[in-house]
Amino acid sequence: MSRFVKVQKGFNSDITVRGQKFHIQTEDWGQQNPFLVSRIFANGAVLKTIKTPYDLVLRTGSVYSEQAIKQALHRQHSTIIDTLMAGAMP
């Protein structure tokens, strides 16, 4: 059985790319629903949802460490921002 720890809930960022405003929200859904979920919003509507299972980015033996979750959460959020800034949609 995996062990989970509580970490930072998520990140929120507002960016403007070529005059278009985006809000990026990335959350850790926690041990009951082990996913990192990012949503890209424009004008209040969800344009895209990216849902990544813990197992794809976090497994270190049978333990999900607080540091690994925090790093994966930040990495996913930053990657989405970088992709949008480059003019592409993830």
Rank of each mutant, 00 (worst) to 15 (best):
V17C: 13
V5N: 06
N12W: 00
T16D: 03
A72S: 08
M85P: 00
V37H: 05
S13W: 01
E66H: 01
V17R: 11
N43W: 12
A42T: 14
P90V: 15
R18W: 00
R59C: 02
G10W: 02
I81F: 04
L36G: 09
L47E: 13
R18S: 15
R75C: 03
P90W: 15
H77A: 06
V7Q: 07
M1K: 13
N33Y: 13
M85V: 01
E27C: 06
P90E: 15
T26A: 05
T60Y: 10
V63Q: 03
S38C: 10
P53D: 02
A45F: 10
Q25R: 14
R59A: 13
A42Q: 15
G44Y: 04
Q67M: 12
V7H: 00
Q8E: 09
R59W: 03
V7K: 02
I69F: 03
T26S: 12
Q20V: 15
T79A: 13
G87P: 03
V57G: 05
Q67Y: 08
T16K: 06
E27D: 08
Q25N: 15
L47P: 11
F4C: 03
S65H: 05
P90R: 08
I24Q: 14
L56R: 00
G30Y: 08
I80E: 04
Q32T: 03
L36Q: 08
T52R: 07
Y64K: 00
G30R: 08
I80S: 02
L56P: 04
R39W: 01
K48S: 07
I69A: 01
H74G: 02
L84S: 04
T60H: 09
Q32M: 05
Q20M: 12
Q31S: 11
K70L: 07
S2M: 13
E27G: 01
H77E: 02
A72M: 04
K51C: 11
D28P: 01
Y54H: 05
L56Q: 10
K21D: 13
R3G: 15
K9S: 05
G61M: 00
K6T: 00
H23E: 15
T83Y: 08
R39L: 02
I15K: 08
A88M: 12
D28W: 05
H74D: 09
A68V: 01
S62E: 07
S62L: 01
I40M: 14
T26I: 09
M1Q: 10
G87T: 01
Q20S: 13
D55T: 04
V37W: 06
M89Q: 06
F41E: 06
E27L: 12
M85G: 01
F4V: 13
D82S: 11
D28K: 01
I81W: 03
I69R: 09
H74R: 10
D14V: 15
V17K: 11
T49H: 08
F4K: 00
G30E: 04
Q25P: 02
K21M: 09
V5S: 01
G44F: 06
G61R: 05
R39P: 05
L47F: 07
Y54L: 06
A68Q: 06
F41V: 07
H74K: 13
N12G: 10
D82Y: 08
T16F: 02
Q76E: 14
V57E: 04
